[in-house]
Design a protein around this nucleic acid. Structure first.
Length: 433
RNA sequence: GUCCCCAUCGUCUAGUGGCAGGACAACAGCCUUUCGAGCUGACAACGCGGGUUCGAUUCCCGCUGGGGACACCA
């Protein structure tokens, strides 16, 4: 069986886009599935728009996704001699001509048919594009020419790319033939679109893989989601590991319809992957983020962070929920949401209850969850309150918010000193209202 | 405008010439100290018109709708 060789060929003129990432993923899965070779090729022939900063973004995003190249990266800007040699062949045979500082290829009028693994045969009339520029007047090759030369010389067996390239393919086929190269198999996969069904754009949220990474999507979850956009493993499977994806991937199961990017489903998948991540691993991810943010020092208390991790493990959607929703763990005095304070921390009875609670908690030797819970419940019983009537105010007093992880755990993790300090702060806050 | 591609719940999808399945979301209920957590439930789709066929969501044609491409960008 012929060796499978595929490539992902981004141009460094922007950050790695979700759509490109999905194309890279399909290529990679296809290669891995049949033990083939995945090649990275950087198409940097647009001198004006290419930038090293984008190259960096692309490679780090691919690394994040766990998509590593078996070969490359090759840079088209370093292969000028190759293109010149090929273009010379066309000039020598009279198939290409020089014109105003560029080399162009007059396309003979004909019907070109190529086979697509998803779409079947596609036929196009070449009079639609009568001539193709091969070498620009700046001496660099055009996309269609460089792409054909590279795919042929790199012995790419399958060209898997977005279906926005369907219109380029007949142009490339014409060039393959003129150069006497054999034509690879093509598979044009559907685009990923935004909520408005048009091409995914920044207007409807993040488009760069790096942004999703920053927000805190797990590599495996993001890959899982991307794989499900336009493909499915069958058998009603949705939550799929990287290994299972490789095992199951098959171009024949790729759909032909553009898929809409749905962040809610991505969130759900991420929460599922988060639940399947070990507490130890999750704590490491937490520490990285917190240290980067300056909320945690390098010699942090590992057991303490692990307790927080355990608590949040099953109830978060993205890693940034840690900083967004649970900042109170890492602050001296939390930020108080005005609405939460207004709803739960007003009135003299509450002040008295919090003062009473504070003095009772002050007597505790052990501040474990059951100890603090029994103090709170004891007070509830004595004052003939409902649990809610006391728990909600305590929550706001300690976290500044009306929503938090289970309160008694939170109290125990915060520890006696901070709980007492915050209760005092909150009673003053309340008394002043 | 021209050419090309596409068409199953709101969204991602499964599926078959013979009862259209799953997931997310939204909704309802339950549980609960709150919740973005958990559990349960109900709702929800084959774009339209012709053919072929005993029978079409499935095959064919047309229409409509959507998208993409029409650069010395990639």
């Amino acid at each position: 069986m012929a060796m499978v060789r595929v490539r992902f060929a981004p141009s460094p003129t922007g950050t790695l886009h979700v759509g490109s990432a999905r194309t890279a993923l399909f290529n990679w899965l296809f290669a891995k599935h049949q033990d083939g070779t995945f090649i990275l090729r950087i198409e940097d022939t647009d001198q004006k728009r290419s930038d090293k900063i984008f190259l960096k973004d692309i490679t780090s995003s691919l690394t994040f996704l766990g998509i590593q190249a078996d070969e490359g990266p090759y840079f088209q800007s370093e292969r000028l001699a190759v293109y010149q040699e090929q273009v010379q062949r066309l000039l020598d045979s009279g198939k290409a001509v020089k014109e105003a500082g560029a080399v162009v290829f007059p396309v003979p009028a004909e019907e070109v048919t190529f086979h697509d693994l998803l779409h079947g045969d596609i036929t196009v009339d070449t009079t639609l594009f009568e001539r193709l520029v091969l070498m620009k007047s700046d001496g660099l090759p055009t996309y269609n020419f460089a792409c054909v030369v590279d795919d042929a010389l790199m012995q790419i067996s399958h060209v898997i790319r977005g279906d926005d390239h369907i219109a380029n393919t007949p142009k490339q086929v014409v060039l393959y033939r003129a150069l006497g190269f054999s034509i690879p198999a093509f598979a044009h996969i559907p685009l990923i679109v935004g909520a408005d069904r048009a091409r995914l754009s920044k207007r409807q949220g993040a488009t760069a893989v790096a942004e999703y990474r920053q927000v805190g999507y797990l590599s495996d979850a993001f890959v899982n989601y991307l794989a499900l956009l336009g493909w499915s493993p069958g058998g009603n499977r949705e939550l799929v590991s990287r290994e299972e994806l490789i095992q199951a991937f098959d171009l024949s199961r790729v759909r032909k319809t553009a898929a809409q990017f749905d962040q809610q489903k991505l969130d759900w998948l991420n929460s599922q992957h988060l639940k399947r991540t070990s507490v130890e691993r999750l704590a490491e991810l937490f520490a990285e983020r917190l240290i980067a943010k300056g909320w945690l020092s390098n010699d942090y208390d590992r057991d303490w962070l692990k307790r927080i991790t355990q608590l949040l493990h099953d109830r978060m959607r993205v890693l940034s929920d840690l900083e967004e929703e649970n900042a109170f763990f890492f602050q001296d005095i939390p930020a108080y949401e005005p609405e939460a304070v207004a709803n739960f921390l007003s009135g003299e009875p509450i002040v008295q209850q919090l003062i009473e609670l504070r003095s009772r908690l002050g007597l505790l030797d052990s501040f474990d969850t059951t100890a603090v819970e029994s103090v709170v419940r004891g007070l509830v019983a004595e004052k003939s309150l409902t649990a809610k009537a006391l728990i909600h105010p305590i929550r706001v007093a300690l976290t500044g918010r009306s929503v938090s992880p289970p309160l008694f755990e939170v109290m125990s993790i915060l520890g006696k000193d901070r709980v007492l300090r915050r209760l005092e702060h909150a009673t003053q806050l309340t008394a002043h209202r």
